[in-house]
Design a protein around this nucleic acid. Structure first.
Lengths: 401, 401
DNA sequence: CGTCTGCTTGAATCGCACC
DNA sequence: GGGTGCGATTCAAGCAGAC
């Protein structure tokens, strides 16, 4: 029975599994979403009753409830269940899980959050999915995971305000509690319930073309949290078999079940030859892509622009265009000559067919020359530079710079 | 009735509000969660029925349903409702909202995500809350907000127009010569439904009936998304009045209702003097109140200055002085005439004995006059203004502004 | 008024070209 | 000829327009 993918209805097939033998069940059940959900009472004035909800979703709730009850029996006392949930069925799934496992065994609502392509939807762009985590008992197995200090570390430092003390010395502001902010190297923070995991990318090799395919790393995390090696993992709606692949890679035993023969075959192929995407984004982190310092971009404050990260010549592109060509912006970097900055920008202008671009000068060692202007580059002094010169350099410039 | 905070049960007090007059309702209802949730059927073998759920939560569901039905009537046709939801009551709230507003008017589940200090709890660290967003009709008011592109996005995607070739493959569009076609204005990525808003103030205990204080920026974002100026915002469980404060700061009308007299009084105090009370808030967590000033001050990026929070005339004082007198800085505010800004600054200069000050012009409707210069005020145009004029207003200024 | 098809879109990878 | 910068490609959500 172990380490297999079985075709059939899980209600039947689960009978073949020994009770109290499974450590973790993960499921992403099918959701038969009726697009047309017509309420009998158009006025909606009637007193609310759960019976309506029941009637409207009776078939589905019974379908799921019957199966989840069996799953509960299969779980060990220290076992856990993770239910991946469509947003249209959240309340039904929650109600069933509360019923079968008990409210007291609700552990977490996990938010899988990701960035994705946009569309023209009116309203907010959907970019998360919900996973409910229940345990069979209070004594569930749980391996606390510490997350690496993420981008937030940076953000917090940026958020931290600098101020001056009474001796006019620059110090970091502390809050009323006087908390020292991330001074040393911490081991990390305990994993929280919002997981930022990239969506399975269109170009990912991991992709097998199955509609609801989940990233391996999502399943790996779930498996690592609640099982040890050689424990048994069950996925009763296994689809393309991601759960089984993850279990195999982590030396757990697994059982997968799916109605569709094609899904079972696909799963078997994947298990035989697992492919895991070595995602650059995951390996290096989001911040590794950021090559523009916040300071440079903050000089553009008040402008409507799109920041550009993956380009040497440009820091931003203005939202408004000039004669149907893009207006590029570059901020002169510290220790960079104005002429160097201009030549990088000029190169970018050529390849991007830009007719007019802005170079923001942050250092007054050099004067812009005519060559720069001929290329269509407008040099503007940053406000601090302008302030310095307007105040007259002799008195004002006490600072070294 | 407008711009007031009223004490009492919202079911009663909402009767005083004109029907179809409210543009936005935000509520964080109290959740009377029974910790001891005893199921009649200990074995949990019985066939699942929604009636159990109903019976167990009957009182609460009726309480909330009755009030939400009234709220629906108060909303304009293009109005929206945002319900802040405790994780223990999600399914009840969703069911009620589906019932009253209809599944087809479900717009988003907003995840408010924040970082929290770790605790020793076994399991995942809870670090999000859920907000349900329903509209009254399909034609709800929505002001799309655009955010920055992902760090991994490359320039060409922002700049170039794309098309499909004969094999339906997505390619970059080129002209006859093979040059890339410029795609025109790109605004950025529409705001998504996972909002990372810091919440440094550790949530005290669990909910005990008194609503926890929300960050202003959370409410500001909700209000900006779904209302325009002078629209009416209602918070039927307003607690400490954050919704009302946010509405006031954004020039929206508001009505707040709360059972507790103390809450109403606290709200009134905060509304009467948002600046003062909000600056107390700052110690706990820098709320969005800083927003407005922060925006102005970021124009000074690269300068060493001290921000000035509570002064009508000045936004900052430069660290370096001019002839042993302080250099004051003021940024022209939106809807403020340059002459107004100058006279406020001049007044501040007098009291601070400043010989030289900087006025940053952000609006080009008015030209600085000699009187201003005589007072020792140097007027500098903000970078956006300088860019506009350098690009030549006739072509660049397609935007209205 | 449904149903179908096509278009636009952003993220994140792959792989080419350029030093 | 090895590293890398950045241009090219892929995919699916969701609307618009066709029929």
């Amino acid at each position: 029975m172990i380490n297999k993918v079985i075709a059939g209805d899980c209600l039947e097939k689960m009978k073949l599994i020994e009770k109290s033998s499974v450590s973790l069940i993960y499921l992403d059940p099918p959701f038969f979403t009726k697009k047309k959900h017509v309420l009998s009472n158009k006025e909606r004035t009637k007193v609310f009753s759960f019976d309506d909800l029941w009637e409207n979703n009776k078939g589905y709730a019974e379908f799921l409830n019957a199966r989840i009850e069996v799953m509960r029996d299969l779980l060990k006392e220290d076992g856990s269940i993770f239910v991946h949930c469509d947003k249209s069925a959240q309340h039904i799934v929650r109600a069933i899980l509360d019923n079968v496992f008990g409210v007291e065994n609700f552990q977490s609502e996990i938010i899988w959050s990701y960035k994705r392509w946009s569309n023209s939807k009116k309203g907010l762009l959907p970019s998360h999915q919900n996973i409910y985590f229940y345990s069979k008992s209070k004594n569930f197995k749980f391996n606390t995971v510490y997350t690496a200090y993420s981008e937030t570390t940076n953000v917090d430092q940026i958020l931290q305000r600098r101020t001056r003390d009474k001796h006019n010395k620059s110090i970091y502001d502390t809050n009323e509690v006087g908390e020292a902010k991330y001074s040393g190297q911490k081991k990390g923070v305990p994993l929280n319930d919002v997981w930022d995991i990239p969506y399975l990318n269109p170009k990912a090799k991991e992709r097998v073309g199955y509609p609801t395919q989940k990233p391996l790393i999502l399943l790996e995390r779930i498996i690592q949290l609640t099982t040890n090696e050689n424990d048994l993992v069950l996925d009763p709606f296994c689809g393309s078999g991601t759960t089984c692949v993850a279990a195999k890679l982590l030396n757990r035993n697994f059982i997968g079940i799916d109605q569709s023969i094609e899904a079972v075959q696909l799963s078997q192929t994947r298990i035989a030859n697992p492919v895991k995407t070595e995602s650059n984004l995951l390996k290096k982190g989001r911040s590794s892509y950021v090559n523009k310092d916040k300071e440079a971009l903050s000089l553009l404050s008040g402008l409507e622009y799109n920041a550009v990260q993956r380009n040497k010549g440009i820091d931003a592109i203005l939202v408004n265009s000039f004669r149907d060509s893009p207006v590029l912006v570059r901020v002169q970097k510290p220790n960079e000559l104005l002429s160097e900055a201009a030549s990088l920008l000029a190169k970018a202008m050529e390849s991007k067919k830009s007719k007019k671009s802005i170079l923001i000068q942050t250092n007054h060692d050099e004067q812009p020359n005519e060559v720069i202007a001929l290329k269509g580059i407008v040099v503007l002094k940053s406000l601090p530079l302008q302030i310095e010169s307007s105040l007259g350099s002799e008195e004002y410039l006490k600072k070294v710079s």
